[in-house]
Design a protein around this nucleic acid. Sequence first.
DNA 1: CAGTATCCAGACCGATACTG
DNA 2: CAGTATCGGTCTGGATACTG
Lengths: 114, 114
Amino acid sequence: MAEAKDMYSFEKPGSTLAMAEDVMGCKWSLSVLGVVRQGICRPGMIQRSIEGLTTKVMNERLKKLTRYNIIERQAYPEIPPRVEYHLTDFGKKFVSILDQFSALDQELETRAKS
Amino acid sequence: MAEAKDMYSFEKPGSTLAMAEDVMGCKWSLSVLGVVRQGICRPGMIQRSIEGLTTKVMNERLKKLTRYNIIERQAYPEIPPRVEYHLTDFGKKFVSILDQFSALDQELETRAKS
DNA sequence: CAGTATCCAGACCGATACTG
DNA sequence: CAGTATCGGTCTGGATACTG
């Protein structure tokens, strides 16, 4: 059984926090997540939306985000092939936490003005 | 003035989110933050608390966290020298967001049990 | 269009020795 | 005790070409 102290220790392997660390530690992860959440879901469009992102890295990130169940992949058996990525329910919770970092910005700005 | 769409774009340079990315992307950052929040505030103790952490990397992390105003450094002019690091108010908000990632774990566990 | 393979420069971090 | 300097291996990500 977990002790209360454990509530305050970071770095549990396999935890959501460790996952967040892994995701955020990779360059381009947040950019990709950002455009996917905006509804830009096809690889070609994702790449064209993000200046400087290469195919290789994009696919690595999409794979990682998929593996962590933050986004999910749907492939349509057409010619030419079509693939779509969308946030999962878990992914929506995940990005809503990321938003709270941004919310701190607003708070700091507001404070600066007053 | 910012458009509504900007609310959903990640990756603003200089933002708290970019800072979070920078911090979390560095190995050992969260470990260091974790022990400092527990009140382990002196470098020697911090290092002894974290298996595998070297002096060099610890100091790099402490510097970065200090630069971002997540923790603050207090030096006492004694012999031998004594230094303490503590969370700032901003840092407390920062770690409370990190806790929400961990909170997702609880939620998932609870759901698994039921 | 979606995705993979290969190559390589540079960043990161671990080990160690050192200063005040 | 707190912190810095140096060196070297590893791993990441950027460029490019390629397959189905």
